[in-house]
């Protein structure tokens, strides 16, 4: 059984961070805190100058990371660091341009070599995915796809033919960022996706606490992704690496306990 498959034996908590936020060394601490807090999968984002799918919190994280000198391979450096102490599955999360610049084959080879398990390209619908899929197949990585409230059943079926690992449902219209409530559409989306996909279905965008995470798991989701809430914990504790680690561990643990109970 692969690492990702194994992570879904129970409802999975997926924690997102930006590689190099607030700098390379402290982002290794962030990764270890996400894992230490009980995350089942970690998503490592490659910072990008023009993150059009992200809200202000993750945009600021990207800016901090780029200012600190983070490059696409910083995500691999952090993955290698994680592999020294953990087998938690790693998903590399990126916009497509850094991959085009590096070359698909070289990028996926680098991801595999570092110990990553999957790649998710946020601005790549399945129609544009041929090169990515070929590279993922060649290097033995899963290619994760997104599904939105606006995705028709017909599109979902086409995505299901290509997706592996798990499928990532976008819970609300709009960019990443915490939201107070899980919209009814998200719960309906989970039900629809569960019928179409035979791989695990996770929900992200806007999940901020144990309450709405639990609600999604109860509605049938196999996991939840928390991103902006973690990144905010970095912003709130910029003066202390210890503070960053502690607050992230606590946040992850709280949500993880919520979905386990």
């Amino acid at each position: 059984m692969g690492r990702i498959e194994k992570a879904f034996e129970k409802p999975a908590f997926i924690g997102y961070m930006v590689a190099g936020d607030p700098d390379i060394e402290r982002s290794k601490t962030v990764a270890s805190a996400i894992i230490g807090g009980g995350a089942d999968i970690i998503e490592i984002g490659i910072p990008f100058t023009d993150p059009v799918a992200d809200g202000p919190v993750i945009q600021r994280a990207d800016t901090r990371a780029l200012s600190a000198g983070a490059v696409p391979s910083s995500a691999f450096e952090i993955t290698r660091d994680i592999r020294r102490y953990s087998d938690v599955p790693v998903v590399i999360f990126t916009y497509i341009n850094p991959i085009i610049k590096a070359g698909f084959d070289s990028f996926y080879a680098g991801a595999k070599e570092s110990g990553a398990d999957a790649v998710l390209i946020v601005d790549m619908p399945f129609e544009e995915a041929d090169e990515a899929q070929a590279a993922a197949g060649k290097h033995g990585l899963d290619q994760i796809f997104l599904v939105s409230i606006t995705t028709s059943e017909e599109r979902m079926k086409k995505i299901a033919e290509k997706a592996s690992g798990f499928v990532y449902l976008i819970s609300a219209l709009g960019t990443t960022g915490q939201r107070d409530q899980i919209p009814q559409e998200a719960l309906e989306l989970v039900a629809k996706a569960k019928k179409i996909f035979d791989i695990p279905v996770v929900v992200g965008f806007g999940i901020s606490g144990p309450g709405n995470a639990r609600r999604l798991i109860d509605s049938g989701a196999d996991g939840v992704v928390v991103g902006s809430a973690i990144v905010s914990a970095i912003e709130d504790n910029m003066d202390s690496a210890e503070g960053i680690g502690d607050s992230i561990r606590k946040l992850v643990n709280e949500i993880k306990s919520g979905i386990d109970s």
């Binding site: 059009v52 946020v122 601005d123 544009e128 796809f145 997104l146 606006t150 976008i170």
Partner: peptide
């Protein structure tokens, strides 16, 4: 091409 987040493909 169409290199956009999935949400916009519908539009």
């Amino acid at each position: 091409g169409q290199f956009v987040p999935e949400t916009l493909m519908f539009a």
